[in-house]
Nucleic acid binder design. Structure first.
Lengths: 154, 154
DNA sequence: CTTACTGCAAACAGTTTGCAGACGT
DNA sequence: ACGTCTGCAAACTGTTTGCAGTAAG
């Protein structure tokens, strides 16, 4: 999903039935480049402004909405309720740090399998599951350092 | 947590070091009565207004904030980013219906154990887990009927 | 050439803030 | 009586909308 050329981006826009406008190309490029940081519309807008001085915040909002509708991006709401965007549209979980307000992706095949198995053994009547995700809340010990996940052998 | 008398509510407010004002009593009463519906500040305000015509929306917001800080309530953000309140402060998961915007509680001892075990086998470096919760997204088949969870025998 | 998309500015929803007065302890 | 809490209104943040002009296919 990363390091797409502009032509590849143009291509995927067309595949989704969207016109490949300059604004859409640079917005999508920015979100994939910022992969892992879950930017807000404002973040994207600020990042694009220097190189695209005429782009408007409203367009960034509309564009991100459109991308979410077509499934190119996933919307994640922060603990504070602001909307953030994730170029990782695969099933994955999120770690929320209440100290730094960061949202860190947490992909784990085993966890996914565990939950898939669990939910296949329940019957949710009158509800069609589209997706699931685990939300881990807590806070960083050292706010400046990264969070890393290692496996402990049983 | 349900059907607390006003005196019991008064009591738990005092235990949290808060003054037992009329506004706090009725707000806490309303949230516990609306248990399961995850009301917004506005919902609470509208519910209280008839019987408490002088209560203000600002007070409801402040009161709910205070309750969240003391741990009497839990804040949940909806898929749209609005803040909702949950009188169930135990570990539990949420089912989000994108059709009706409902948030349904999903308590399951087995799921909790499964996740506890899973996370005890991982080491999250530089992160202190405060809690976790599974988010199920999807939509109701029959919007007017309830969602029910049954267990399928293996 | 046509229709979808953009920029702009205004509107909007939800939430927070500051302060004078009211109330619980 | 003291300090905390409330009501009110204004301010603020993040997001959405309507419309005239622009650009993509």
């Amino acid at each position: 999903m990363q390091h797409l050329t502009r032509d590849e981006i143009r291509q995927s826009l067309i595949e989704c039935g969207l016109k490949a406008t300059h604004q859409r190309i640079v917005v999508l490029e920015a979100v994939t480049e910022l992969h892992g940081s879950h930017p807000t519309a404002e973040d994207i807008f600020q990042r694009l402004r220097p190189a695209n001085p005429t782009i408007s915040l409203g367009t960034v909002y509309k564009t991100l909405d459109t991308f979410t509708e077509t499934g190119m991006l996933r919307r994640v709401v922060s603990e504070q309720g602001s909307k953030r965007y994730d170029s990782n549209t695969m099933t994955h979980s999120h770690i929320y740090c209440s100290k730094t307000k960061e949202i860190v992706d947490f992909e784990d095949e085993e966890l996914e399998q565990l939950l898939l198995k669990f939910f296949s053994e329940r019957k949710l009547e009158n509800f069609e599951i589209k997706g699931f995700s685990v939300q881990l809340t807590g806070c960083k010990v050292e706010p400046d350092k990264k969070i890393s996940i290692t496996r402990v052998p049983k």
